[in-house]
Simulated assay, not measured.
Amino acid sequence: MAYKTLITVLTDATLVAPTLAEAEALAARSDAHLEVLCLGVDRSQAGFYYGGASAMLMEQSMARAQGEANEVESAVRAYLKTSTIRWSCEADVAQITDIPHRVGLRTRFADVAVLPRPYGKDRGSELEAVAEACLFNGSVPTLIVPADADASQTVVPKRILVGWNESPEAMSAIRAALPMMLEADKVHVVVVDPPAHGPNRSDPGGSVSQFLARHGVKVEIDVLSKTLPRVSDVLMRHAVDMKADLMVMGGYGHSRFREAVFGGATRNLLEAATLPLFMAH
């Protein structure tokens, strides 16, 4: 596999083990170096403090964030101390508004970022900010793993579902996921309600399938009707039907604001997917 530098950004000690299980397995399979950023997040907004309190509260908030970063770092070092992979670990702190800049700078030189699912019970808002920072500011393909994922299936997925909608984001995800696709038994390019008018209306998914086949990927095309209210629902149902180990798709084809307010396939899948998601923007 072509991945040689992996990175994960962790902000919660309870998510260290499931996330590192995936990252460590992928690093071992790829003979890659794993970088771990243990990030403590200051969630305060200094501009809203009453007069005279800003400095004191900011100091307390930063001290709390540093404590969280140290806690995560200790959990990471305990988990990886007997690992055979090459790894490095560093603790840092950031205000939540600075996460895009800080995380983007740290992840841009990685081949893949491995992150926990940003939505769900007891998941803080900083997880969403970290995921978006990887995709947008770091421009790094990102593997999102649910807490109960099977690392062996993700690292060498036998069946991969590709959500294809002809977007640049989907094509970026496909190119980035090629090393995984080459080892899969079958890759299903899934097209939901292809447009009736357009250059590929007579052969939906044909061009991207040809691209994958020329690389040696064992590929099939599945054209589905939108029989459920949301495209994400159709993709998830099909993933269950085909027993997919991994879903590959473009991340945030619409603006982040629009998806946050009105929803979208990316947001919906990040909230509900029970299998790992490989995304790129």
Results as ranks from 00 to 15, higher is better:
M1S: 13
L6H: 01
T11N: 12
T11Q: 03
D12L: 06
A13M: 04
A28W: 00
A28G: 05
L34C: 02
L37T: 09
C38S: 08
G40I: 01
A46N: 07
G51I: 07
A53T: 15
A55D: 15
M56G: 05
L57G: 01
M58A: 12
Q60V: 07
M62G: 06
M62E: 14
R64I: 07
R64D: 06
E71G: 00
E71D: 03
E71Y: 00
E73T: 09
A75R: 12
V76Q: 07
R77Q: 13
A78H: 15
C89V: 13
I96G: 04
T97V: 14
D98H: 13
V103R: 08
R106C: 04
F109M: 13
D111W: 10
D111L: 09
V114K: 10
L115K: 10
L115W: 13
L115P: 11
P116D: 05
D122V: 10
G124L: 10
E126W: 03
E128V: 12
C134L: 08
L135Q: 05
S139K: 13
P146D: 06
Q153D: 11
V156C: 08
P157A: 07
K158G: 14
R159P: 11
G163D: 10
W164P: 12
S167E: 03
P168T: 05
R175P: 00
M180H: 10
D185T: 13
D185G: 14
H188Q: 15
V189K: 13
V189M: 13
V191E: 06
V192L: 09
P195A: 09
P195Y: 11
H197G: 11
S202H: 14
Q210M: 14
L212A: 06
A213F: 08
A213V: 06
H215R: 12
I221Q: 02
D222Y: 02
V223L: 00
L224M: 05
P229I: 02
S232Q: 05
V234F: 07
V240M: 11
M242N: 08
K243W: 00
D245L: 03
L246H: 04
M247N: 01
V248P: 09
G250K: 10
H254V: 14
H254M: 15
S255P: 14
R258K: 15
G263A: 06
G264V: 10
G264R: 08
G264L: 07
N268H: 14
L269H: 05
L269D: 04
L270V: 03
L270D: 01
L270G: 03
E271P: 00
L275I: 15
F278Y: 12
M279K: 10
H281F: 07
